[in-house]
Amino acid sequence: MTAATTETGRVLGVDGCREGWVGVAPDPDGPRAYVAADLRTLVRLAEQDGPVVRVGVDIPVGLADSGWRAADTLVRAALGPRRASLFATPVRAALEATDHAAGVLLSRAASDAGFSIQAWGLRGKVREVDRLVRDGEDRVREVHPELSFTTMAGHPARHPKKTWAGQRERVALLDAAGIRLDALTGATGSAGPDDVVDAAAAAWTARRLAAGTAVSLPDPPELLPHGLHAAVWA
């Protein structure tokens, strides 16, 4: 599915980091970074420099009550050798459990499989974004940086992102797309270089969403409970 609307204004790409969230806005005079403990505050900080029309966030948007999201299955297939970078999203009940072991039991009951401790580690951020979109924040769309880079290059990245070669590969793709991280200003706090690069990739997709040229997996997005739609955009 291609995004149907064309909007004018700033966009923000967001990735999780140790401090909470790091965002990159690909402004015409150079990208600007922001960091905050929660996503709502991050967007507010970005809006001090101009209205934000679209936010691309590297976290699941839309949780299933049973089974597995089509978006996760399709994106893993599209990523090929980089598929390990995507953790399948557990059902809502599993993410509301008191601990990982209890969540795995609930996941197996609803989806016939458990889920990784890494996916459990994202639980707080998943629930934060879920509350935000259910409260009516309609600018947020789910992205996955590796899918963004795959779309930019026309193929999955050749090197893992945490390697030196992988960072150079991704920074070069962003530079060719007009997001020059060597001109980055603003605050990144304790965010690692890979967090900033991923936020910039999310910003690339957010820019395509605003322009109406982004595409979704699945196409059309999957309708899930609470009136939410699950799709990863690139």
Rank of each mutant, 00 (worst) to 15 (best):
P145V: 08
S116H: 12
G67S: 10
L181S: 02
A230D: 03
E142N: 10
V53E: 02
A210P: 04
D198M: 10
A113T: 14
P81T: 08
L74P: 00
A183R: 15
S66N: 09
R168E: 15
T5F: 11
R180H: 15
E96S: 13
A46H: 05
W204N: 01
V52P: 00
T150Q: 13
A214L: 07
E169C: 02
R40K: 09
R69M: 04
A113W: 00
L42I: 08
R82S: 10
V140E: 00
R131W: 05
G166Q: 01
T188K: 13
A94S: 15
T8W: 04
D38Y: 03
C17A: 09
T163M: 11
D175T: 14
A37T: 13
D112T: 14
L95I: 09
D27E: 11
R141G: 12
G186Q: 02
D135V: 00
P26V: 02
A97G: 11
E19N: 10
D29R: 13
T8I: 13
Q118K: 11
Q48G: 06
E7T: 10
A210G: 07
L86F: 00
P28G: 07
H144V: 12
P28W: 12
V91A: 14
T185F: 06
E222C: 03
T5W: 04
G67I: 02
P51T: 11
L39G: 00
K162I: 01
W204M: 01
A3L: 03
R134N: 12
A200E: 10
R158F: 04
A71V: 03
A230F: 04
T163D: 11
A200P: 11
A94E: 06
R69S: 05
G166A: 09
E142A: 08
H100E: 05
F149K: 03
R123L: 07
A176L: 15
F87P: 01
D198R: 09
Q167M: 15
G154R: 05
G121M: 13
G23E: 04
A214N: 09
P31V: 12
R69E: 03
A119M: 12
V24W: 02
D130F: 07
G114M: 07
E137K: 10
M152A: 10
A165I: 02
R208C: 13
A210Y: 07
S107G: 08
V129K: 07
A101D: 14
A234H: 09
T213Y: 01
L12N: 01
A36Q: 02
A71T: 06
P218H: 04
A202G: 15
R141C: 09
A113N: 03
L173M: 14
L122Q: 08
E146W: 10
R134D: 13
H159G: 01
R82E: 02
H144S: 10
L223C: 05
